[in-house]
Amino acid sequence: MSPIARILTLCLLVVPATAQAKLQVVASVPDLAAIASAIGSEHVDVVCLTSPNQDPHYVDPRPSFMVTLNRADLLVVIGLDLESSWLGRLITNSRNPEIQVGSNGYLEVSSVVERLQVPNTPIDRAMGDIHAGGNPHFLLDPRRARSVAQAIAGRLALLAPNHAKDFNAKLEQLDRQLLIVATEARERFQTLTPGQRQVVAYHQSLAYLLDWLGLTPIATVEPRPGIAPSPSHTALVLRTMRSTKTHTLLQESYYQRGPSETLARLANARLYVFPGGADFEGGESYVERLRKLSQGLFEVLGASNAAVSGD
């Protein structure tokens, strides 16, 4: 009983200290947390439920999240079923009326984004674990993130009207930065040859990144979304990479690397692995993350020139 008693005393000290006027914002993924934090700045405390190296489709619904959600003023999620396998029940059981679906404290940012890969035929899971409402990984595109930032700013202003001016100022600042990142990187990637701009992604999650940077998807390592690579499909990807002279593979850090590494070796290609989100805990901003991502990717794609001539 003594550790429990110790924790009890500790919490008696902690509870009054945490009572303050800052808006408590909870985000499902680090990129959202970083955007919310940039806009809310000193008026908000942002907690992120997942880490950048964690697959947001498969998160353990820890009961401790319920405690975090219980105290939230605003919950910001991606939506489109990205978090549905772990977050839904936690929201219901959070006992926080302010963050229930339909409340002002619940913001699903996919509602303001122009989505890609919205299925236009009847869907079925034989197609893999596809998202009925479209691809949810739109924060890999700063142009779409601008709408997201705007929605978050709007919601923060609704919840804390006194700080609306500050939120709008921060939004303007972030918006300008996003526009610069978006335009600069896009122009820079245009200098690559069409061959260099061909890529193979692990999962169908990179549509927005490719759309932003003008890259051409050749194949995915997964045969269908959420279905682990099979030998025959991997062989097909290898043949496709060879015939199309594709020398770059891309994937988020939370996907398995074995098949991609093998493909990179056999196809004389480079594998570029990047975090699934900003290192929010480490203080990285969303803009920094995008810069790092596009910079790293540009170097890998540019270097594939040497690989091509070496063929």
Partner: peptide, 14 residues
């Protein structure tokens, strides 16, 4: 593009 949303983007502060 953002106008296609069903929720108000920037709910007006007072």
């Amino acid at each position: 593009a953002t106008r296609t949303s069903t929720t108000p983007l920037v709910p007006p502060a007072p």
